[in-house]
Amino acid sequence: MDETTQLMLRGVCRGLHLAGYFTAFGTMFLSALLLNGVTVRGHKTLVWAGCGLAILAGAGWFLFQTAYFASTNNLSAIIAALPIVAQDTRFGGLLLGRLAVLLLAALLFQANRPRAAALLGFGGVVAEAWLGHGGAMAGWEGTVLLGSAIMHLAAAGIWLGTLPGLCLAIAVVAEPGPLARRYSPLGGLCIAMLLLTACIQYALLIARPGAFLTSAYGAVALGKILLFGGLILLAARNRLYLTPTLPETRPALLRAIGAEMALGLLVLLAAGILLQLEPPAMAGIT
């Protein structure tokens, strides 16, 4: 397996891991905050599905990351290195710890304790920040990047993570209008936070606009920006045109949320790949 293929596989596994983690946490958050602790039919299954995806993709990420650390494609050597990575690296400890937290949160949700589950899941979501560039850098830049990554993950987990649960709830509740109207300000706040933190991260990691066209990191980042722009347009359409006229527009809103979920998955896959690449500011690319 060549280096580029291994990098892509690590990135895809990381993106899918985030998608599963966000889905499980977001469903808990939606139930705890916007549904006042009520669990809609199908939400418990959705949490387990997200948890399963996070575990399976996390296992793949762990395996490919171990191969990267050990600089080998030999399966026996990779398996031998797994305990070392689990015990002696920040990556291994954080990934396994976050998965344990997610499992505990899922069990709490099944026991009809959505608020405790959401709080625990939130901790697992933001802990991902220590596996990014901010967690590895020293000095004021590392501190700023870590803080922005925490806010970025929180906003992404709440917005993208709640979309599957929101879609399910709007499909089954008798009166979807009040839920959709309560959700809109929260989605807007998350979008604003994502835009702000993305600007901070790109200013520190990409540094110059020309790097969007002269580096692999910049090209993937540009693709992620375009996908995010599509997400914002869909969210704006939902809020301005579809939500005010519910329940008549329920089918159209469900289709639009489905499109948001698809774009959101692509954004997370792009983010997973992006985090495997060296930022232009670190590589000296202009």
Rank of each mutant, 00 (worst) to 15 (best):
D2I: 08
T4F: 10
L7K: 12
L7Y: 04
L7F: 02
R10F: 03
G11Q: 07
L18S: 02
L18I: 03
A19W: 09
T23F: 05
F25K: 04
T27W: 08
F29K: 03
L33A: 06
L34W: 10
N36I: 03
G37D: 08
G42C: 07
W48R: 15
W48S: 09
A49F: 13
G52E: 03
A59G: 14
F62R: 00
F64C: 06
Q65N: 14
F69C: 00
T72G: 11
N73F: 13
N73G: 15
S76Q: 13
A81Y: 11
L82K: 13
V85S: 07
A86S: 14
D88K: 06
D88P: 04
T89R: 04
F91D: 05
F91Q: 02
G92Y: 08
G93A: 02
G93W: 08
L94Q: 01
L96V: 06
L99W: 13
L104K: 01
L107T: 05
L107Y: 10
F109P: 09
F109S: 12
F109W: 06
F109T: 12
Q110F: 11
A111I: 02
N112Q: 14
R113K: 15
P114D: 14
A116G: 12
L119R: 13
L119K: 11
G121C: 11
V125W: 00
A127I: 06
E128Q: 09
L131R: 01
H133E: 01
G135L: 05
W140Y: 04
W140N: 11
E141S: 12
L145K: 09
L145E: 05
A155P: 02
W159F: 08
P164T: 08
C167A: 14
C167W: 10
L168S: 02
V172M: 05
E175D: 10
P176R: 03
G177M: 09
G177Y: 00
L179R: 05
R181K: 10
R182K: 07
R182E: 11
S184K: 01
S184V: 13
G188R: 13
L189S: 14
C190M: 04
M193Y: 00
T197Y: 06
Q201L: 01
Q201H: 10
Q201N: 12
R208G: 08
P209H: 13
L213N: 07
L213F: 14
T214F: 11
S215V: 10
A216N: 13
A216M: 12
G218D: 01
I225V: 11
L227R: 01
L231K: 12
I232Y: 00
L234E: 03
N238I: 03
L242E: 13
L242S: 03
P244Q: 06
P244L: 09
R250L: 11
A252G: 03
L253Q: 08
L254T: 01
A259I: 11
A259S: 12
A259Q: 13
E260A: 02
M261C: 14
M261R: 02
A262W: 09
G264T: 00
L265G: 04
L268P: 02
A270H: 01
I273L: 09
P280K: 12
P280C: 10
G284R: 04
I285T: 06
